[in-house]
Design a protein around this nucleic acid. Structure first.
Length: 924
RNA sequence: GCCCUGAUGGUGGAAUGGUAGACACGAGGGACUUAAAAUCCCUUGGCCAUUACGGCUGUGCGGGUUCGAGUCCCGCUCGGGGCACCA
């Protein structure tokens, strides 16, 4: 029998299906292990060879854990809601569900082709009503909750209502959009509508009126992580800032817990850092400045540099600040209005690109609470409304933005740190000794900056002019989208009051077109009878893409449960994801939202773990490798890469399927496109036309897409799997290069030839030799360690070495070959299973056996070869008994005939002996 | 600007502070074959030798620690990623 993947792989896969190998269930007799891939959005283009990289590595790990005796949950599903399906629906009128279903079928086929061990009985799709029922359920829970800062968790909103009725806002410490203060009487006298508005201020899923990212081209609002450099992440369309009513999730309430949680999970430092940056904690002080002549106006600012209060020479308000109106004096009114008008229509992107210093004086003055000095209040868009209090104290000497502003408008600059030269630029570093910082009650002069910050904060609190405060950059997530293809938000409007609609699932209705209505309402505005049975209108917005992916890992634990998102039993067994594999591009989106969602459910005790993903591996991207031919300008003649510099040429992309090992198939090239039919070629001296190459994104337009199906067809799934792992470390981005795949394919054929020579089976029952056992156990040791460390590329090398050794030893031992197959099985499951059952004659699947333990005794040596170095340079080797003493080794090294040459005319100064490693002789 | 990463042959990449370049690709040479494919063997960082199982040099750059540094420390350069008028 020859190795024939086309025969083996489908048969083996059918066998696994027949014995239902991958179905798992709660089994308290075994430890659990949960391996999860980030589920894909099923795009119409199908998978290219870069997509399965992560899936293959997680599959290897799952199969390995299974062999180690774990009950492994390894599910797969589809993130089915997405823009492309909706765009396609708009163009064609075809329901997005049809395209989505078709694409999913294709994805499953491709994944099956690679031999994934997914338990498809647990498959989920975010667009199934049975699934999104639980997305809607969680939303309603959030709607019915507020965040209690004292308990540091989410609580039912009824608790807050009861508290208001009894005590008003007295004693309430809750996350909210804006601080409110009222008495119990005031609350009890409020109308239903007024009460609803107050509660909305506290809900974890709330309707808010604020500045949002509006993308006109997509016709929808976007969350902060969906906007990159002022453009939409999908499609790259401009995004504007617009004040609108939208649904939000109060993610910001969990800022500190999201930050703290990072300490106990096993994620890469870079992705944790990305999340820390995104959460953006900063410690500082909130301070109140009085306004000259207006005793009832309080100018509240936030600063991390409380030590610099004596250097404040002006104040700045964000243009959106409510105080702008109050602080603008009649004389300045015209100038302020003109300024506000000039910046109002700028998009986020324009504002980011054009960072000119602009601003206007309000006419008012604030009073520095420490020095008592009067400083002017300005208005400028370099202060952001959404961060801190929307107002700042400006210290031009020690903040570069304030410095630029002061220079532009000729405002005074007072240095506060000894030796700081502020004639050219500000001194932003937090170091040095304070000067010019003495007021009536507080003197910071002579202190180090660090101490001065602490002293200033302490004074501010004591004097009642402010308080120590922690600010976070993390904003609440915008949760509504003006689109069709998403989960309906289960809310109806009763007399204008947003009310939970709890008959779930609230199914997505049919519409005639997938476009906004004539009156500009979202597509759901087209649905007939889109209201509750009582006739209350339903919400027209749908949920964003991240809604369905936020808790999907919980649903896999118990995917068919109608009573709960996940049963207590299933959740307490599977707990959370032990290993999560996916791209790092989700660092500030999905990976934050999932953690938030998880913590929320944890607060109510629906689940038992407060972090969803214990260990995270971010696989790198696989780039494409494009090929180029060089046409001599003005001709139809192409020159080989090595000759191109002799002519005036234009590089042209060529389909990589016409190229092998960078050598162009010139005949195929002529047939590729009509204009090349009579192309001429100038080749290298060996007659080959060599193409140039470049590493670029894998895409149709670059003609460099490699389809995994083609690779499987030609080499088989096992070769594809091994080769993808062999390419390099999993976390690293690297180019796909089909050229190297032959080496891996040869390896599998060599492996096969250990078992079969033609129809003759080479396996026998002979005792393994010491050599056999050494080769085998070296492999087991290496691969066991590699898999745990996620270093699969070095494992593949280890297999190659082992196979070569066993082949040269002519090893036919059933015992050795059986264990070899077990170690290989996670990587190349088909060929391992086939040989296990046929050549070795085992009954049952190899995946029902156990991972072999390596035995150190087989690896032990009697003798050891060590290098002898002179002044650190290795010169010759000595071979000694393993347990030789340092003295013996030193004597052997000096007595060796080869030593004489290096010792000639020199004296030995020192000898360092590290048994088993080196003998270093220092001579001089 | 701040933070995180990384830099090793023609290529992808190996190396618990102990003989850098494992393994693989590519390239060159050879064997088998009518031929091709497949398979097998040899060479392959650079330079100098080739009478030698030989010498020198070499892991982005410059220093340092050490008997010994790709690996540890300090200072740079360049690439990839994150955050950013965030006060």
């Amino acid at each position: 029998m020859e190795y024939n993947h086309k025969d083996i792989e489908p048969r083996v896969r059918q066998y696994w299906k027949d014995i239902d190998l991958y179905s798992v269930d709660v089994d308290n007799s075994k430890p659990k292990y949960y391996v999860l891939d980030m589920f894909p959005y099923p795009s119409g283009a199908g998978l290219h060879v870069g997509h399965p990289l992560g899936y293959i590595s997680s599959d290897i790990y799952s199969r390995y854990k299974r062999l180690c005796g774990f009950n492994v949950l390894h599910p797969m599903g589809f993130d089915a809601y997405g823009l492309p399906a909706e765009q396609y629906a708009i163009q064609t009128g075809q329901h997005p569900e049809i395209t989505t279903t078709k694409n999913i079928a294709r994805y499953i086929e491709q994944l099956e082709n690679i031999g994934m061990s997914f338990d498809w009985s647990r498959q989920i799709r975010t667009c199934d009503p049975g699934y999104y029922k639980w997305t809607q359920w969680a939303f309603l829970k959030m709607f019915a909750s507020y965040y209690d800062r004292k308990a540091d968790k989410a609580m039912p909103i009824e608790n807050l209502e009861k508290h208001f009725a009894a005590h008003g806002t007295q004693g309430v410490d809750a996350a909210c959009t804006k601080d409110l203060a009222f008495t119990a009487d005031e609350w009890n006298n409020m109308s239903k509508k007024e009460k609803a508005d107050v509660l909305m201020n506290y809900r974890l899923a709330y309707l808010g009126y604020s500045v949002v990212n509006w993308c006109p081209a997509l016709g929808t609002v976007l969350a902060n992580d969906e906007v990159v450099d002022g453009l939409s992440e999908r499609g790259g369309h401009p995004v504007e800032q617009k004040k609108m009513w939208q649904w939000f999730l109060r993610v910001s309430a969990y800022s500190q817990r999201l930050l703290d949680g990072l300490e106990k999970i096993d994620w890469s430092e870079s992705i944790k850092e990305t999340q820390r940056n995104w959460i953006g904690r900063s410690e500082g002080a909130e301070m109140h400045f009085k306004v000259d002549g207006c005793p009832d106006i309080d100018l509240e600012i936030f600063t991390t540099r409380a030590d610099t209060v004596f250097g404040v020479t002006f104040m700045v308000l964000a243009p959106e600040s409510k105080l702008v109106d109050q602080l603008t004096t009649p004389e300045q009114r015209a100038a302020v209005d003109e300024y506000l008008a000039s910046i109002r229509h700028r998009t986020e992107r324009e504002r980011m690109i054009d960072r000119r210093v602009t601003g206007v004086f309000s006419g008012s003055y604030a009073i520095n609470p420490l020095s008592g000095k009067k400083v002017p209040v300005w208005i400028s868009d370099y202060v952001l409304a959404g961060y801190g209090t929307g107002a700042i104290m400006a210290v031009p000497a020690h903040d570069s933005r304030d410095y630029a502003f002061a220079r532009h408008f000729n405002l005074p600059i007072i240095p506060l740190i000894e030796g700081a030269d502020v004639s050219e630029q500000s001194f932003d570093a937090k170091e040095g000794r304070m000067i010019n910082s003495e007021g009536p009650e507080l003197n910071l002069n002579g202190m180090e900056v660090k101490d001065a910050i602490a002293a200033a904060k302490k004074y501010i609190e004591k004097a009642g002019i402010g308080r120590v405060k922690v600010n976070y950059r993390l904003r609440d997530a915008i949760f509504s989208r003006q689109r069709y293809w998403g989960e309906p938000i289960p809310v109806c409007y009763v007399d204008g009051v947003a009310t939970a609609y709890d008959k779930l699932p609230l199914e997505l209705p049919e519409v005639d077109k997938y476009l906004p209505t004539e009156t500009g309402e979202p597509p759901l505005g087209r649905a007939k009878n889109w209201c509750t049975p009582e006739g209350y209108p339903l919400e027209l917005n749908t949920m964003p893409g991240f809604a369905g992916s936020s808790a999907y890992y919980l649903r896999y634990m118990d995917p068919h449960n109608d009573e709960a998102l996940v049963s207590k039993e299933a959740n307490e067994y599977w707990r959370n994801v032990d290993l999560y594999v996916g791209g790092s591009e989700h660092a500030t989106g999905h990976l934050i939202y999932s953690r938030f969602w998880d913590k929320f459910l944890y607060d109510y005790g629906y689940i038992c773990e407060d972090e969803p993903f214990r260990k995270l591996i971010n696989q790198g991207m696989i780039q494409g490798r494009s090929n180029y031919v060089y046409r001599i300008n003005g001709t139809n003649k192409f020159v080989s890469h090595g000759l191109k510099d002799q002519y005036d040429t234009t590089p042209l992309l060529v389909d990589i399927n016409l190229v092998k090992n960078d050598v162009l198939d010139t005949e195929a090239f002529r047939k590729w496109r009509p204009e090349y039919a009579d192309a001429e070629f100038e080749t290298e001296a060996n007659g080959k036309y060599v193409c140039g190459w470049a590493i670029e994104k894998m895409s149709k337009s670059k003609h460099n897409v490699v389809n995994p199906d083609d690779i499987v067809e030609r080499y088989g799934a096992d070769t594809l799997r091994l080769y993808e792992m062999f390419l390099g470390p999993i976390e690293q981005s690297k180019p796909w290069d089909t050229n190297g795949i032959d080496g891996v394919y040869r390896f599998i054929k060599k492996l096969w030839s250990l078992f079969w020579r033609g129809d003759e089976c080479l396996v026998n029952d002979s005792e393994p030799t010491a050599e056999n056992l050494k080769s085998l156990h070296k492999l087991i040791k290496k691969v066991s360690a590699d898999i745990e460390a996620f270093s699969f590329n070095t494992s593949v090398s280890a297999f190659m070495i082992c196979i070569n050794e066993l082949a040269s030893q002519k090893c036919g031992s059933r015992e050795v070959l059986g264990q070899l197959l077990l170690v290989l099985a996670p990587f190349a499951p088909h060929v391992a299973e086939e040989l296990w059952r046929t050549a070795l004659g085992n009954n049952g699947s190899i995946f029902e056996a156990s991972w072999p333990e390596y035995k150190e005794e087989y690896l032990k040596e009697n003798t050891v070869t060590m290098a002898v170095s002179f002044n650190g340079k290795p010169r010759f080797n000595i071979t000694a008994a393993v347990d030789a003493s340092k003295e013996d080794l030193e004597a052997m090294a000096l007595a060796d005939p080869a030593a004489a040459k290096w010792l000639e005319g020199k004296t030995v100064r020192k000898v360092i002996v590290v048994p088993g490693k080196i003998v270093n002789i220092v001579v001089g």
